[in-house]
Nucleic acid binder design. Structure first.
Lengths: 199, 199, 199, 199
DNA sequence: ATGTAACCGAGACGGTACGTCGGGTCTTGCC
DNA sequence: GGCAAGACCCGACGTACCGTCTCGGTTACAT
């Protein structure tokens, strides 16, 4: 265990900062998440924070990616409905009830003010998450449970969009029946033949 | 032309403040939307702002509700698909490309940090907007073009959720084909009989 | 008693700052005389200090000029030796033992690093002080107790120079006999005819 | 020529540091004389500086004593006036115009804030300098050109005090006539019998 | 017409947090 | 074991806005 030296930064300091940021955000909210408070909580000098992170949001993003990278991997049971039900439920819980989700919501909020952060959040987290969201659908196509012509990007959007909408916009809870209804409606649309839609 | 007096506030000052806030947000972004800048731009004293609006977000919400209350009323052509296509396209444009939408995105961002604002945004704007989102569906039920048993709240969520998701989360554009695909998928799911969904 | 308003700065705040600066310098020395400490001691915001004084030394100079402007006026007893003895003793006490002298020494120290301050200190304090130093000599010339041809500037330098030297450079105390010896030596030189000086 | 090793400190590093400190002080003034700048200019690590000098002023004092110890030795021509004229002129030039004088002025400035440095500056430089200032007077006493009863300390003070006063306090130049006038006045006082001074 | 009371622009105030800078300490690995 | 390198903690710096306050001027109704 060492401090900074000519060969690089102190991993100890780095982790203390990331954890302090996480904790302070969850405990006191974004408004009280100041660099000074993070530094004090982490037992670190402010300058050490500014040395390694250009801004508070870069720091939060780093904390989020470090802590939460492994979450939200969908299961692979062989059954599309089961896989999606589990995955969407996990996503809903992440968005509404988890500590990592609190960090994610704060980052999303900031990204609406800051296009640079929005880009980083998308390239460094969201694109991978969207790939995970598509995984059960891709497997179902391979198994023949979904038509090969299915637009998987669109279908994934139709499934997760309403969850983000409720979690971040309407603020309503996402109970299991809601997930089931969503799943039924969207999958029915995906598997039905060309319907009554054209006017 | 009058200023404040014992009988009430100056409408002139009120409008100047709201317009200045709107303009500064659109021109320079939320970060540079300071009360001092609004006061200077509006030619108004800071105290006049604090006298009438408890916080900057209350001011923004007032500006948003004043400017944009009349927008996004869905048409009533008698055809569900047409009505929804127009309405969802308008919603997409509002969320991604309008000045009022910029204010709405900023308010949404703040509401993720501030539950009190979230509540106000929902009761004073979002609930009415969601009612407008349901209107075409309600009319279709009355006309018999949708089953009477349809869960309209859920159906509306499934339609608008992906638009909010793309506009606020993924940042992708929402082209006409995307709206059409969404409409086809969700309406097909709504009108198909009970499908293959149950395992 | 009022705070700042459209009519200008708060005299209350101004005096609190000047007094706090004086006190802190005398109590803790220049090293611990920070703007933050002054602000806290005066019950004033840091910005209030920066609003009115360009730098800490400008503040100190203001404090010095406000507090000490009336000091060190030489007496006029009609007797040159008495006048000078009193005046030089007062000057010695000011330089070595007074609170105002502590501020003066600090300003002098800074002026050795800062030509701008040196100029201000000379034009706003020292030139007046040097005029006061010459006063007893001028009166003696008028009374005929000193030759009319006397170079008063030089003579004053010869009297006060050694006091500044001991007070600021050698740090030795300046006891009454020292002042008397100085006076005897310099005045003897001033009143003697052209002496053995030319080689 | 060797670097630091088991045999002791690197003389090369020591001299590079002292010279860098001197140069930076003369070139950029005391304000920009930072330890980091000295280290960089000397091609030395900061720690090497802190290892050998307790503080920046100790370093400056070391630089001053190393560079300037040999200066300001008065001549011995056998003629008091000549000796003093040369010596006082050299002293005046040192105080106002030399590089070593710049370092001395900076040290003097710091010593007014720092009693510990003041003591060191007096014991390690000033006392020797004052002894040199007294040398011509002592020789004159031996030669019988000054009364044996002369208070040499006081006389030396009366001669150099006004030079320090002009150089450090009033900032005026010290031209040859000023030195001559000073010399004439003070020596006349020293050689005249008991004068008109007692009231 | 004059007095009164509420609102107005202006801007100084006490604060909080920012991001930067320099001082002085510590660790590593080369020589 | 001295050295260069450089990350570290500490704490003061000067800045930007915050939200509060007081002021003198303005306006419009009520006497």
């Amino acid at each position: 265990m060492h401090h900074g030296n000519r060969h690089g930064r102190s991993e100890q300091a780095r982790l203390a900062v990331l954890e302090a940021a996480d904790d302070l955000l969850v405990e006191h909210g974004f408004a009280r998440l100041t660099v000074e408070a993070i530094a004090q909580r982490a037992g670190v000098a402010k300058q050490t924070i500014y040395r390694w992170w250009p801004s508070k949001t870069d720091l939060l993003l780093d904390a989020f990616l470090t802590d939460a990278a492994e979450e939200l991997v969908p299961p692979d049971t062989g059954d599309l409905v089961t896989d999606l039900h589990v995955h969407l439920s996990n996503l809903a819980r992440f968005l509404t009830n988890s500590d990592a989700g609190a960090v994610y919501r704060a980052l999303t909020a900031e990204s609406l003010h800051d296009p640079r952060l929005a880009t980083r959040l998308r390239t460094e987290y969201l694109s991978a998450q969207r790939a995970r969201d598509r995984l059960p659908l891709q497997r179902a196509v391979i198994r023949g449970h979904l038509p090969a012509s299915t637009d998987l990007d669109a279908l994934a959007d139709h499934l997760v969009g309403p969850l983000y909408y409720r979690a971040l916009i309407t603020g309503e809870e996402i109970a299991p029946p809601y997930v089931e209804g969503l799943l039924a409606s969207v999958l029915r649309g995906a598997t039905a033949g060309p319907g009554m839609v054209q006017p």
